[in-house]
Structure formats: structure tokens, C-alpha cells
Design a protein around this nucleic acid. Structure first.
Lengths: 192, 192
DNA sequence: ACTTTTTTGTGATGTAAATCACAGGTAAGC
DNA sequence: GCTTACCTGTGATTTACATCACAAAAAAGT
């Protein structure tokens, strides 16, 4: 199972067996059931989560109780409330499971320890962060530049499997569209 | 002038004099006039720019010729087309000067060299990237969760000086609102 | 198998904000 | 100082999308 992590890291930087063992020792595995919270608003955020299997979502709940999806987290993805995690503050986001999920938890302390001790790992995390930054820029541009239907279509193209795996309400919430409007897009597309 | 860079780095990690001199040697200073491009859509992105003085903007121009602001870059900020820079691709964004601007240019090659040679610098860039990621997440949440007026008001609160320094059209374009709608918000606020 | 809950589609209506249009104001160029 | 270009405010109209309301379909729980 942890070979997923090793492959993931080695896409950026190769590790010796003993290096990887050392790295892995800084993670702790956990399992969560569907619906269970990984992080709940208000609590101190201890961990970043590397998803081994399953599917989770991070989202913000506003004053009116409306949810806005920040991120999905599936196999091979990292997820947490990064603002709270990096600054060791209380969570503004919730993260819970759409499916039963297995993760590897990495505390901020262990992350910083690994980065300090192994230059390779600092390199790895810098590269991941850079890639994440670019991905968020793309999402912002898409929010600024594309209308709801265009955003729907690019997401459908990029992650078609997501549309099978999660209720449309969540996809709507990720795209910043109402459930009903999203539904009308998919009916329209069916005509083709 | 380069003390701005030193202070900027040392907010994250201290450097000896000789370390800083070594780092600085990997940057090259350049000056740009108002209106001048730092990066133009389509060209290969060679550099990340650290702004010493002045003000620039990065933006996407869509098929209809409409501009959407990705970022402002003022003193002490980094700016480039990161997608293109990190992957050594052609720019999708334009970057040009709102005011006469002085920058320090860092090529990807020199950035990676510094990161490989000086663990401290890899640490610095990781931290910067993390902070940038969190900032973009906040912007996405604001786009998903807040209406145009709320976005206007939080930006005004966060960067009041920006409203003196740049035309409202640009602020509208950053917020994803039309110039006219933004103008109506500011008239309303005057009544108080 | 039956009940309950969740998910989805679709019509009717309302609204925030875009777009169009024009005028006064301010700054820049010569 | 005059001219040209850019910037801002404000009304009238349009539009994309939200919200409300309901029903059918699918999934989950017992």
C-alpha cells in the first residue's frame, strides 16, 4: 500500500530503500468510513493527508449553511486545510469522506523534520507546492474567464470519472454553480 | 536596492553575507517603463521577477479580447507566468507595467541551481510557494462564496492603497466584475 | 420487499450583475 | 493652452444563473 507513496515521491525524486523507509516512518496510516470527518471546522489541524484509497472532499460552509467545495481528494492526492495546517491554526474548512478512505497522515512537525533532514524531501515538497500553485491559478482563471457551462465542460473533460463517483450537487458546489443549473447543462449535452 | 531581496529572504531564513552575495549573483536587474511588457503571450518564459519598485500586472486575454487579472505585482512580490515558467512553455499570460518598474530576474536554471546548492534556498522557495498556495485558495473561496460587492469590500480593506494606485477597470478585472458594477459599489459606499 | 433518504430533472419566477450607451472629469501629449 | 486619450459615474436594458417548488428515480437502511 505504501508503494503508492513511494511511487508518488519518486515521480519527482528517487529514494534509496532506506531513505524511503525513513520517510515512511514519519507517516501514520488511518482509515475513515464514509461520512466520517478527517477535519472539522474549528479544530486544530494536525495533519496533511496523503490519500491511498477512497475519496474525500474539503469544503467551506458559510453563514447561510451553503457549502463550497475547495477540493476533492482521491488516490495519490494530498489534502488538508493548508491555511490552518501551515500556520497551526483552527480549521476553517471541513474535510470528510465521500467513500471509505485510507490515508497516510503527516504532521507539520514531521514534515518540517523530513525537509530539514533530507534535502530531497524539501525538494519534493517544493515541487508539489509549485504544481499545486499552478493548478489553483488555472482554477481562478477558469472562474474569472469561463461561464458555468464552460467550467462544467472542462471539468467533465478533465475528470470524467468524477461524474460517476460523486453526486452532482458536489460537482456543482466545486464549480460554483447551483445544482439545478448544472443539471440543465447535462440534459443539454445529452442531446448530442 | 538588493537589500530588499535580502530582507525578503531573511524573513524566512537567515543568510550569511557571502551566502547572500552568492544568491544575488544569480539574479539580474532590469528596468521597465510604464506600459512595457515583461512577458508577452506566446513567448518562452525565461524568468521569475522579484519586484523592487513599481507595479506590474499579469493577465489573461480571452478570445473576445477581454482581460482577466491574475495578479498585481508590487514591491517585494514575485511575479511571472508560473505555469509557463515551471514547465518552460510559452506564456498564456501577459505581464506589463502599470508604473515604471525595477525587477530582479531569476531564470529557472538559476533557481534550480540555487535550490540544489543551498538547502536554505530550497527551504525559502518551498515556504514562499506554500504561502502562495494558501493565498490562492483564499481567493478561490472568495470567488465561490462572496458576491461581487463582498469581494470588492474585502479587497478594499486588504489593499486600500491599490485603489489609489491603479484604475478601477483593473480592480474590476481582478475581482471578476464589470467596471460599471464596481463603480456602483464605490458610489454606494460614499453615502456613508 | 418495503420504507426512508438521497439524488436528479424540469418548470416558473426572481435577481445580481453584464452589457450598451453616453457624458463629464481627469490626465497625458504636443 | 489646447487636443486627444483615458478614466469614471450613471441610466436603461438584457441575460445568465439562483432560488423556489415539485415529482420521479435511484440508493441505502432495516
Amino acid at each position: 500500500m505504501s508503494t503508492i507513496l513511494r511511487k508518488h515521491i519518486e515521480r519527482i525524486t528517487p529514494l534509496t530503500d532506506s531513505e524511503f523507509d525513513y520517510v515512511l516512518a514519519h507517516f501514520s496510516p488511518r482509515s475513515f468510513k464514509k461520512q466520517q470527518y478527517l477535519i472539522q471546522e474549528g479544530e486544530l489541524v494536525q495533519n496533511d493527508f496523503f490519500v491511498l484509497s477512497g475519496l474525500v472532499k474539503s469544503y467551506y460552509t458559510n453563514a447561510d449553511g451553503k457549502e463550497h467545495l475547495m477540493q476533492f481528494g482521491m488516490e495519490d492526492w494530498w489534502i488538508t486545510d493548508y491555511q490552518a495546517y501551515f500556520n497551526q491554526q483552527h480549521a476553517q474548512l471541513n474535510i470528510d469522506c465521500i467513500e471509505n478512505t485510507q490515508v497516510l497522515c503527516l504532521s507539520l512537525h514531521n514534515r518540517e523534520k523530513l525537509c530539514a533532514e533530507l534535502h530531497k524531501m524539501e525538494h519534493f515538497f517544493r515541487k508539489k507546492s509549485n504544481a499545486g500553485y499552478v493548478a489553483l491559478q488555472r482554477r481562478i482563471l477558469s472562474l474569472l474567464n469561463n461561464n458555468a457551462q464552460e467550467r462544467y465542460e472542462s471539468l467533465l473533460k478533465l475528470y470524467p470519472e468524477l461524474f460517476q463517483r460523486v453526486p452532482k450537487t458536489l460537482i456543482a458546489s466545486y464549480l460554483g454553480v447551483s445544482r439545478e443549473t448544472l443539471s440543465r447543462f447535462s440534459s443539454k449535452a445529452d442531446l448530442k
